[in-house]
């Protein structure tokens, strides 16, 4: 139990660190960086809970993105003026499976070598990684977009109140 909590805290903390770091790269203001950290921690925390419960990466990423989107758009948007959706998106950046994509492309590179080793395994693994990347990015995008569309917060401050 303690191990599971430690793992959850670890993933949430480093999710927050990654989101805040990318928040600086995306030129967020100082105040918003705290929200980026919180958004990243929430997203990674929820995804870790899902994965620990035996869900697939895609399902856990979708639920984490959707919950974060609801939190940000539904409850925090007056404090995250004027574009809460960008905070939610930055919070989800640590869930983008860039490492899978790199490994998938590396696998495809390996197939083109003169004498590829374990071709069938490499093909299966590469296709699996590519599919996981595609489905996970779609899961994150859908999880972020659906609540925002429902809550009519997609665009400007003005339109949020429409």
């Amino acid at each position: 139990m303690i191990e599971a909590v430690e793992h959850l805290a670890h993933q949430a903390f480093f999710g927050g660190v990654a989101a805040a770091g990318f928040g600086i790269l995306f030129n967020f203001g100082t105040r918003d960086l705290l929200w980026c950290f919180a958004a990243g921690a929430i997203a990674l925390g929820l995804r870790t809970l899902g994965l620990d419960a035996g869900w697939s990466l895609e399902a856990a990423s979708f639920v984490a993105a959707a919950c974060l989107s609801v939190c940000v758009a539904g409850f925090l948007h007056p404090r995250l003026d004027p574009a809460p959706d960008m905070i939610a998106l930055t919070g989800c950046i640590p869930m983008v499976p860039g490492a899978f994509l790199a490994q998938a492309i590396l696998g495809l590179f390996a197939l083109t070598s003169p004498n590829p080793d374990k071709e069938i395994t490499t093909v299966v693994l590469s296709v699996e990684y590519l599919l996981r990347v595609a489905f996970t990015i779609c899961a994150i995008g859908t999880g972020l977009a659906v609540p925002l569309h429902i809550l009519k917060l997609m665009n400007f401050r003005g339109s949020a109140a429409e």
Partner: peptide, 18 residues
Amino acid sequence: LFVAAATGLACAGFGRLL
């Protein structure tokens, strides 16, 4: 330089997540 250091920290954080 601050952006570079923050990005480095973010990647190191990503590393721990991986």
